[in-house]
Each structure stands twice: as structure tokens, then as C-alpha cells.
Design a protein around this nucleic acid. Structure first.
Lengths: 201, 201
DNA sequence: CAGTTGACATACGTGGCGTATGTCAATTAG
DNA sequence: CTAATTGACATACGCCACGTATGTCAACTG
């Protein structure tokens, strides 16, 4: 019982490193976290970290992917409960805005990851969210529900709006109130996209 | 003639440091630029840099402020030539989107500065643009031109949309085409804000 | 059961930031 | 006009942290 198999212990250390990194990156930021403390909190040394993730950026990438996947799962769940595509899209946007208000998402996913990992990350990791938005937009355009435009471009516009509004709400003096205001302000922005003759409500 | 006054030489070194830093930060990014090379390119040593700007972050802050001020000046100019407030607002947004597509603005103002300087920078430096947008929105709401919402929140939404779309266009395979698409997609988003009964065109 | 792999620890080199100290020219007082 | 002083900037040093090279021991494999 005491002796675990090789892959089990390996997976466990990976998870512990990931968890510890997520805490440190989320609390102190990428630049301020030092690898020795991070690994010590996980109960291992730097050797394990470099063995698994290559370097500090690799670790950040792994953490960012994990965060992104979690958020995306939440969005899919929120969207699936909607009565129609348009409502589903709106719920997805609202859920996204709320999700990235969390401090960890703010710090890791929206502040450090783009700066450290560069543009290639946004086009590989967060593109999940963006392409998801773009796909929904394309579908809504073909059914004539919203005005036509380049879906990719409009998706990026909306993604930026949601992300930035979340940053504003997260750093506001009253976050929950600011979040509510952001969601309220989002309403006319989204409704403005709808075609005049679309089905009301 | 050879001997310049004290403040003159001081101001000159400041400018040269700022220019050199702007080049290095814009080309290589904040983390990759090393102070020795930066100061060598400016013709001075690190001593001068620390004397003027305190530390590396201080230098970045100065560069970011300069960039922000330049952009804001351009936006004011673009806006002033408009026939009415609504058209002025739209021109400001379009000019903003175009301006932050520049590589230097992308790298320094939108990627490194938020990550290194933190939230306090966005609330002090870039707030020029955001508060400017918020003020325009407030004015347009009181005249009934656009739907009502919390101006601050809507301003952040729009600011994020413009910034993110610019990032997308800047990293696209065909930047000028992507920029045009982003500007096209911006159109329905902005027009959607207008009140139904507002003056057309 | 012996050989081998590989997950992880340990030790070291290096690069870069910040600071303490020094120097010399420009201002200012007498 | 000269001497004292300020301060802009150069030089030298220490420290910290990342990454890598090397070592070790337990788990698979034949």
C-alpha cells in the first residue's frame, strides 16, 4: 500500500506543483514568485519543476491552460441551459464576464500570461473563448438574428470588452456593484447587435 | 557655446534615455531589455538612468506616459474635426483603435505596462482615454443620443473592445486587412448604442 | 535478480538589478 | 574672482534568482 506506482506519484507531484504555482502566481504575480518558495510549498525542489515544465514560462503556460479550461467548462454549462441560441450567447457572455472577475483569472490569465507568453498564447490558449464567441456569432448571423460583420473581428471586440470590464469591476472599490453595472452596460451593447426585425424577447 | 547650461544637458539626457528605452521596450519587450545596453545606446551609463527614473519600472512608467499622451493628442485632433458629438465620438474610437495598433503601443502600453505597473497604472495613466470615453458617453446620454447605462462601465467595455481588437489586428497575418475588418465590425457595435429615435446619419 | 531507465535532488555558474561610493563640472556665496 | 557646495552622472560591488549540469535512488524490464 505504501508503494505507489510510478505514474501515480508523478501525476501527483505535477498536480501539487500546478496547485502551488496557481496560488503563488495568483497571489503574488508571475514576476514576484520565486521558484524555491513555490516548490517548497509543494513539498519538492526545483529539480522536479524543471523536469516537468521545462522553465518558469512553461509552468505559467500550464497553469493558464488549466484556468482557461475550467472557465470554458463553466461557460459551456451556462450556455447549455438557455432556451435559444441568442439567449445562450448572452448567458455565455455574462458568465464569461463574471468568471474572469476572479482574482486568479485576472492576475494569471489576463495580466501575466499575455505579457510573458506573448501573442502566441492568446492565439492558442484563450482562443478557445474567442473562437467559441466567433462561432456563436457566425451562427447568429446566418439566422439573421444579428447584424453581419466579420465574426473573428467582432468576437475579439466582444472578448476585449468583457475582459476589460471584468478588470474594471475586479479593481473597483465595490466589486459586486461594479460587476452589476458592467453587466447592465453590456446589455445595450449586445442588444444593439440584434437585427431590427429579429424575434423580440 | 560649447558649454550648455545644467538643465539643458539634464533634459537632453532624459530625452535620450526615454527615446532609447522606448525603442528597446518596443522592440524587445520590458523583460528582455537589459539596462546596460539601453543606457549604452543612449550614450550614458546606468547611473544616469537610476538618477532620473529611480528604477526600471519608473522608466517604463515614463515611457508609457509619453506614449499615452501622444495617442491622446492624436485622438483629440481626430475628434475635433467632426461635425457633431456623435460623429466625434465615433472618430475618436476609430482613431484610438488605429493608434494602438502600432507595435510600440501594443508592446509597451498594452502588454508590458499593465503587467509590470499593475492596476494602478491603468487607473492613472490610461485613464485619460477611458475617462475621455466616459465623458463623451455621458454627454451623449444626456442628449438622448444613445441608450443609458453607467458611463464608467460602458466606457471600460468599449475601451477593452478597441484595445483587444487592435491586438488582434496587429498580430494578424494581414494587419491592414484585419484593421479594416475590425473597424467594420466596430460600426454595428457603436450604432447599436444609438437610441432608436436619434437623428439619423 | 541484475541492468536500465527516469523522476527528482543538489550544487554551481551566470546574468542582471539595485545601491553605495566616487568624481567632476556647474552654480552660488562671499 | 575665488572658494565652497550642490548635484548630475560614472564606477564598483553585492545579491538574488533562474537555468543547467551532475548525482542518486527507487521503480520498471528482461
Amino acid at each position: 500500500m505504501k508503494s505507489k506506482t510510478r505514474s501515480e506519484t508523478m501525476e501527483e507531484t505535477r498536480c501539487r506543483l500546478l496547485l502551488s504555482a496557481r496560488r503563488s502566481f495568483g497571489a503574488d504575480g508571475y514576476a514576484a514568485t520565486v521558484m524555491d518558495e513555490l516548490t517548497a510549498a509543494a513539498g519538492v525542489t526545483r529539480g522536479a519543476l524543471y523536469h516537468h515544465f521545462g522553465d518558469k514560462k512553461g509552468l505559467l503556460l500550464a497553469v493558464a491552460r488549466q484556468l482557461d479550461a475550467e472557465i470554458e467548462a463553466g461557460l459551456a454549462a451556462a450556455e447549455s441551459a438557455a432556451p435559444d441560441p441568442w439567449q445562450g450567447f448572452k448567458r455565455r457572455c455574462r458568465a464569461y464576464l463574471q468568471a474572469v472577475t476572479e482574482p486568479e483569472a485576472q492576475r494569471i490569465l489576463l495580466r501575466d500570461a499575455p505579457a510573458v507568453l506573448g501573442v502566441d498564447f492568446v492565439q492558442a490558449g484563450q482562443r478557445q473563448c474567442v473562437t467559441a464567441i466567433a462561432e456563436r456569432l457566425r451562427g447568429l448571423m446566418t439566422t439573421g438574428e444579428i447584424r453581419t460583420a466579420e465574426p473573428q473581428a467582432l468576437a475579439r471586440l466582444l472578448n476585449g470588452a468583457l475582459v476589460e470590464a471584468a478588470a474594471w469591476a475586479a479593481s473597483a472599490e465595490r466589486p459586486e456593484q461594479a460587476l452589476a453595472q458592467a453587466l447592465d452596460a453590456l446589455e445595450p451593447l449586445l442588444e444593439g447587435l440584434r437585427q431590427k426585425g429579429a424575434s423580440p424577447k
